[in-house]
């Protein structure tokens, strides 16, 4: 009796298999290393300061031994929520435009435009926000660098990515559904609302979740436009500092427990992303339609 996967016995094949497997293992090891090093570096903070104090200290004053990450966590969450709620509707509309409203050639051009937008580096978005948007907001309601600026810049930044993904999920709706709807004489919007959007909702949701992930993790754009004041903001015009910006600002000169606390905040980010991945995965099957 022979069973699956008897490797072909040629020598180069064994070599190939070995080398390839080595690659796979190495790729897997990368994640392991990331986790191991983050934890190892964060360990002193977790031991000396403790998990609880990272959220209950009076403030974030590492030089005075105060390590409260909560204001930054708030900053991250508010900027993210704002950005995604601004970007997602525009992205859905963009996707609908490409799939159902635009003439074919126009849709091609628009898609290319969105692709180009998706390739613009975040530091350029941040720079644009800094020199264009922040002064405008400053005129409206000083100081200018603010939660609002962060939300808008991030929204513009993640919009292309979400729009492209959403268009792909609209395009994945089986043609038969559409033909069926058209055969019934349904209008465009009626068809989209009743057939396309429900059929594509898992994909749309997943795209939005990916947008959340990108917004959470963005550093440069928020670093440049948010003002970086450690506080829980009381209005959208107040400056805030996100977890990512905090790391970028302080890691250069931090040492000892302070440095370690920054690594702890990195782990916090990692855990949030992990949570998002898990949630998206768990929700997805139930949202899946058809097949």
């Amino acid at each position: 009796m022979f069973s699956i996967n008897t490797l072909s016995p040629s020598r180069s094949d064994y070599l190939l298999a070995t080398v390839l497997r080595l690659c796979a293992v190495l790729s897997g090891v990368v994640l392991l290393l990331v986790v191991v090093f983050l934890v190892q570096e964060a360990f002193p903070a977790l031991r000396h300061v403790g998990l609880v104090r990272l959220f209950t200290d009076d403030s974030w004053h590492p030089t005075e031994g105060l390590y409260n990450l909560l204001p930054m966590l708030w900053g991250t969450m508010l900027v993210t929520i704002g950005a995604v709620s601004l970007a997602a509707p525009l992205a859905i509309l963009s996707a609908m435009f490409c799939q159902f409203y635009a003439p074919v050639s126009l849709a091609r051009w628009y898609r290319r435009l969105i692709e180009l937008l998706a390739g613009i580096p975040s530091v350029v978005y941040g720079f644009w926000g800094l020199v264009v948007l922040v002064p405008m907001i400053g005129n409206l309601h000083p100081p200018g660098p603010s939660l609002l600026a962060g939300m808008v810049v991030l929204a513009i930044m993640i919009l292309p990515t979400i729009a492209l993904l959403m268009e792909a999920s609209l395009a994945a709706v089986p043609q038969e559904y559409l033909h069926g709807a058209l055969a019934l004489g349904l209008r465009r919007w009626t068809m989209i609302r009743n057939i396309v959007l429900p059929a594509a909702r898992s994909g749309l949701f997943a795209s939005a979740v990916l947008g959340v992930g990108r917004a959470l993790g963005e550093t440069m754009a928020v670093l440049m436009v948010c003002g970086n004041v450690v506080q829980i903001p009381h209005s959208v015009f107040a400056p805030v500092r996100t977890l990512t910006a905090n790391i970028a600002l302080e890691i250069a000169y931090a040492f000892g427990t302070h440095r370690s606390a920054l690594f702890a905040s990195g782990i916090l980010l990692l855990l949030i992303v992990l949570g998002i991945v898990v949630v998206a995965d768990a929700v997805k099957p139930r949202w899946t339609y058809g097949e």
Binding site: S27, G28, L32, E41, T219, V273, V277
Partner: peptide, 23 residues
């Protein structure tokens, strides 16, 4: 391997920066 890649794909770049700095 696949699962770790999924997670890796979502990790913020600044966290990679922390890792790269430490490692």
């Amino acid at each position: 391997v696949r699962r770790s890649l999924d997670v890796l794909a979502g990790v913020p770049s600044i966290v990679f920066g922390l890792f790269g700095h430490a490692f």
